[in-house]
Simulated scan of single mutants.
Amino acid sequence: MQADEPLCPKALLSGYTVDGSFQQYCIAKAAHVARIPKEVSLDGVAPVLCAGITVYKGLKESGARPGETVAIVGAGGGLGSLAQQYAKAMGLNVIAIDTGEDKRKMCLEQLGASAYVDFAKSSNVVEDVRNATEDKTGPHAVLLLAVTEKPFQQAAEYVRPRGSVIAIGMPAGAYLRAPVFGTVVKMISIKGSYVGNRKDTAEAIEFYRRGLINAPFKVAGLSELQSVFDKMERGEIAGRYVLDTSR
């Protein structure tokens, strides 16, 4: 239950190492399937089974404790909105980092972030993030959900001493860079976080069952899959799409 099965060097992953991910039925080992409580709706919990588990695992890997502050880069996106909810449910304060007034409103008014830093309008993101913490020394942890490289270079500069930087997003061709001197003298931890194991999955689902997580979604039939991909390419999807394989 607490193993690192996601790190198997010869993992068989539907839609990635093995063709086929959208079908009505699949075969799986009983020991590895997620147990979903009877009272939980299958369509509602679906976004948690990948995006939710991924960000929940990242928060656990960060080592942040209740009452501490975590900065979430890409806070207004699908992963980010779930990360904020899990962070709040875990007793953490959230600094949301993203751009746009709609995302600002969502993060502050709907998701309960204590501060919002608009990276496109900020003249100094590093200082703004530090100043958003109570003692001005930066957040205890940073979750990087961004799809561009630059935020990965900034995080080590504003995280506080002994803080942790958790890379979750995977921008194509991007690299993590951090000043060696600052990383050493501040004793910063920089690490990657992949999807969770079976225990993480059970815990993430339990947060949802208790009503602490809300992932906006729309349901589409399997026959509509191509149109969903078309909308995705045009950037027209808000929240998540759940496929009903019976349609």
Rank of each mutant, 00 (worst) to 15 (best):
N131D: 13
D102V: 07
G163K: 15
A167S: 11
S122G: 03
I72R: 15
M170A: 15
G74Q: 02
S114E: 00
A71V: 05
Y194D: 02
S14G: 13
Q84G: 11
L108G: 01
A167N: 10
K121S: 04
Y158H: 00
S223W: 03
L111K: 09
M90P: 01
L144Y: 00
Y175F: 10
C26R: 14
N93T: 12
G169Q: 06
A202F: 03
A167D: 03
Y194A: 12
D128M: 07
P171F: 08
S81M: 11
V45W: 08
K10M: 15
T245G: 03
E157R: 13
I36C: 05
E233T: 15
A132G: 04
S227N: 09
R104H: 08
L222E: 01
M1K: 05
R177C: 11
E109M: 08
L143P: 02
V180E: 13
P47Q: 07
A174M: 07
R247I: 03
C8M: 07
K231R: 09
V195H: 06
G138P: 02
E236K: 11
R209A: 09
P161Q: 10
Y25V: 07
F152A: 02
G15A: 13
G20L: 15
E127Y: 05
A46Q: 01
P179F: 00
V185G: 01
G173T: 07
Y175G: 04
K150N: 12
Y56P: 00
V195G: 01
L176E: 11
V185L: 12
Y16K: 06
F207T: 09
A71E: 06
S114K: 02
Y116N: 12
R35P: 05
L82Y: 01
A141D: 12
F217K: 15
R130S: 06
V242M: 05
A71R: 08
I97L: 13
F217Y: 13
A34D: 03
P151T: 08
E109P: 03
L82R: 00
G163F: 07
M187K: 11
G15N: 04
I27T: 10
N197M: 11
V142H: 09
